[in-house]
Design a protein around this nucleic acid. Structure first.
Lengths: 239, 239
DNA sequence: GAGTGGTCTAGACCACCAA
DNA sequence: TGGTGGTCTAGACCACTCT
């Protein structure tokens, strides 16, 4: 782990433990240079991470302030599936379970070929799974993954955590994801599995996840119960 | 404008004009150092901006590649209202109009006080406006703004662009925004103005926008027709 | 005017990828 | 093994805020 990441980690913990209280000023960059034995560029890089996380905010001439995290700590968690939803939930001491509904291998149709940059002869896994928190269903995931990138996927991985298999066992490294978020009407499928009413809306998160080498590894549509899940975004202006 | 921003701007134009074609490699950082007469740290900073925008992707040892922008160029535009929706639309040669439905000044209730960090005696503007593209309604915005930060707001500003008034005339500078995106059922109000059906869902974007000095300047809920508007997010992994 | 963060440099070392 | 990007330094200058 890089030095600036280490420093960011230490500072993040100090902020979370309120060793640096909300609304107070962080020590200035010169002092941090002394404490961590790093150059100022490195300190700046560490602070930049925390700024992108929305934990601090720096202004030229005025210092660096710890932000209130009140808005951030809502019940609505960011829907970044590929970081591993199960990890998020464990941290919150919620009981997350997954139920495999469809687990097949098939040849991709045109849409899937386009999203995953495949041709018609490269098979994909088709997975539909229902995820529950404390026995209550909240999201129905329709997932496609190229079989040659994710070999030997089993129903057991699906019932627990797909991403711990990808990251841990297969050693895949992720570059990021494109997401598109929309509202939609619920269909018969949603109503059955999510146990929602006919006129309940659905929050759909469509995403393509990419590996570091540029290959797409997942295309999925997550259909969330509108009363159980939101999506939060922090937008930090560059200037 | 900083040197690294200038460089990023030039490179961005080269990518958009396909002077650097998609999937090809960018010149390496040492060559860019020569071309722009900058240090490598500065070049790296410029490339970092483009990476956060999802235009390029760098890998140690392998070079920096121009990404396909196919997924990005969808009809669904990012719902970052505070950058000025009217500006986005002009660029796309669409005819955006705004209709003022409510324009009042009042004392904030507890929720608004909490979101905008106000007390009960500090008045706020309450604005409801309907926005249309080519005469078709697509979003109904419920907006609150502190009157002392945004003085002399008029119905004319609301009918055109609030943010050009804030940025241009008042010279306000923005730090960023927190957003929460959810699906919801449409209420009578939505149905009337957005001309949607009783069982049509709504995509709601709730946001608090902050100024550079840390003061919140807007709390709003944007209720979007589910068939007219989505929200796209690019998530770039830090490592 | 004193103190703060933002930028920039020239050079160095290292980790990684590809041939 | 050679070329690439990632990190780090020590110091410098500048823009801004606060009082």
């Amino acid at each position: 782990m890089a030095k600036y990441e280490e420093i960011a980690k230490v500072l993040r913990e100090r902020i979370k433990s309120e060793y640096y209280p909300p609304d107070s000023l962080l020590p200035n960059q010169v002092d941090l240079v002394e404490e961590f034995g790093a150059s100022r560029m490195t300190i700046k890089k560490a602070l930049n991470i925390l700024a992108l996380d929305g934990l601090i905010y720096s202004r030229r001439g005025a210092g660096t302030r710890i932000l209130n995290r009140s808005f951030w700590d809502k019940d609505t968690s960011p829907a970044d599936e590929y970081r591993g939803l199960s990890k998020q939930m464990n941290e919150q001491h919620r009981n997350l379970t997954s139920e495999s509904i469809v687990f097949e291998i098939e040849f991709p149709d045109e849409k899937i070929q386009d999203k995953l940059l495949l041709n018609a002869h490269q098979p994909v896994y088709k997975i539909i799974r229902l995820r529950k928190i404390d026995e209550e269903p909240f999201v129905l995931e329709h997932t496609y993954m190229p079989a040659h990138i994710v070999p030997n996927l089993t129903e057991e991985h699906i019932a627990t955590s797909i991403y711990s298999y990808l990251k841990g066992d297969l050693g895949l490294k992720f570059a990021g994801a494109y997401r598109n978020i929309q509202a939609d009407k619920s269909d018969k499928y949603d109503q059955d599995y999510l146990e929602c009413k006919v006129d309940d809306p659905i929050l759909e998160v469509e995403q393509v996840v990419y590996l570091k080498d540029g290959r797409p590894v997942e295309y999925s549509r997550s259909r969330n119960r509108y009363d159980k899940r939101g999506y939060t975004v922090l937008d930090v202006q560059q200037n």
